[in-house]
Design a protein around this nucleic acid. Structure first.
Lengths: 161, 161
DNA sequence: GCGATTATGTGCATAATGCACACATATCGG
DNA sequence: CCGATATGTGTGCATTATGCACATAATCGC
């Protein structure tokens, strides 16, 4: 007779695997070039590769320093520093000093950069609306609440191992 | 007096933005090299860059062809074809023909490859457990259900524009 | 105050990438 | 059935992205 705790662990393992699969599916949706992103590319602005995800993050979380950005994308910070410099040269972000730590060079989105992220945000929002408009309103409320709760928890973990 | 529909649209826009932020935070957690992934790297197997995310996807969704994989990671399929060839040369995946379509070369994980993904799966599971063990059980049930529902919906969309 | 740590940036060699092209197979439509 | 078209995979090539080694400056903690 398996102990109660083992049964619960097995059940949670299954749930985590399902959740992981869902996260991968949603990530795939976000990795696909949206139609408007294709327009950006066709306009000759080389943002499709490493630069665009950074621009999205700067819009969402800026002003943000190089090390924080690098941590988010899982890249070496020197790489990210170079990419932010490129974004600046394209006029899509500005870099400013941080008042509290004179070493930090924070990236903040420009109006031009935001116009770009809004193209893709708009496309993604249309997809999401198409999904959620057929949901019960409390279902979306609950998904948003629980996802924010999960994200808050994993964003503040210092693994104490 | 704003129409009822506009109010609802504004409310959903806010919710989608919160959900997007949560997804980005969770993606950041998944992008961070986990300790066990660091061990893999230290073992001299060059999997940290483009190869490891592919290995994870092959374990989860394999057998899977090059075009499907490329679609998921948002990369050119020729790039992914080369990377899968590398994973095969490392003994982490096998490539096999597809019975239904003789053009397709499906990648499937090997025991060696799976041992690697399990290192990182284990580390991520520990993080997730640390979060969810303090949640009410029905909250995790609901999160898993709603995320799977969302992922199912976005995975089957043909944008009919 | 001072050594250790942290944030950013540069040089360099290597790895990843997408485009052009090719071949083989599958599908479509007359 | 068969030619035209579409799709899946792979190779060559030039360009771009990347991490490591190293450097400078700022901050932290004893």
């Amino acid at each position: 007779m398996p102990s109660r705790k083992n049964v619960q662990n097995t059940r949670m393992s299954k749930q985590l695997r399902v959740l992981h699969g869902a996260l991968l599916d949603i990530a795939a949706m976000m990795n696909r070039p949206q139609r408007d992103e294709l327009l950006i590319r066709a306009a000759g602005i080389p943002l499709d590769r490493a630069l665009f995800p950074l621009l999205v993050l700067i819009e969402r979380f800026g002003p943000i320093g190089v090390v924080d950005l690098a941590d988010r994308v899982g890249r070496d910070y020197t790489t990210v520093s170079r990419q932010v410099a490129k974004l600046e040269s394209l006029g899509l972000v500005l870099r400013q000093d941080n008042a509290e730590d004179r070493r930090v060079r924070e990236a903040v989105i420009t109006a031009k950069g935001k116009a770009m992220t809004e193209l893709v945000d708009g496309a993604r929002e249309r997809i999401a609306r198409g999904v959620f408009e057929s949901w019960e309103p409390h279902e979306l409320d609950e998904l948003v609440r629980l996802m924010r709760k999960f994200a808050d928890a994993v964003s503040h973990d210092p693994p104490a191992d």
